[in-house]
């Protein structure tokens, strides 16, 4: 049985690498990524699972890293925005002006990337269902819809 009783060195698979760092069992994955590993692409926007700015992929599925313990991620594949290498959705966000202040952008892009991989055939309805998990306060969302549509083969 995996057990972590106090602050200890844990090992996570992140962006294709094994990363070791200290974590308290009650540390969230978001905290661990940012404060222990310096992966600050995932942003704290509410730490309550409401805004999506901290979204990362866990085994390919978008997860709000503020609502996951770092310990829970042991044994799973975590992908953060730092793990994407100029993938089409990033280019699409640039081309469609799908951000302004940019703070929500990594979370949106990770959610989009999960969707593109899992449901490349997504309809607008499915896009909405997935991306309603994230809040953008600067854009009108119209630009984000254009960006994701432009990279989904189904659209």
């Amino acid at each position: 049985m995996l057990q972590i009783l106090n602050e200890s060195l844990i090992e996570l698979h992140i962006n294709g690498e094994i990363r070791k760092a200290l974590a308290r069992p009650s540390d969230t994955l978001l905290f661990f990524l940012r404060e222990r590993l310096g992966l600050t692409g995932a942003k704290p926007g509410c730490e309550n699972g409401d805004c999506g700015a901290c979204t990362v992929l866990v085994d390919g599925w978008p997860v709000k890293s503020c609502l996951m313990l770092a310990a829970e991620a042991i044994g799973h594949e975590v992908t953060t925005i730092e793990g994407l290498d100029k993938v089409p959705i990033q280019q699409a966000f640039v081309d469609k002006f799908a951000f302004q202040c940019g703070y929500c952008t990594p979370g949106f892009i990770m959610n989009c990337q999960g969707l593109i991989n899992i449901h490349p055939d997504a309809s607008d309805e499915v896009i909405h269902e997935w991306l309603q998990s994230n809040i953008c306060r600067c854009t009108s969302y119209q630009e984000i819809m254009e960006a994701i549509r432009s990279v989904l083969p189904s659209q």
């Binding site: 692409g41 995932a42 925005i81 730092e82 951000f99 940019g102 952008t105």
Partner: peptide, 10 residues
């Protein structure tokens, strides 16, 4: 600032 922002480097 586009590429900084879409890569999480911003």
């Amino acid at each position: 600032d586009a590429w900084e922002k879409v890569t999480g480097r911003a």
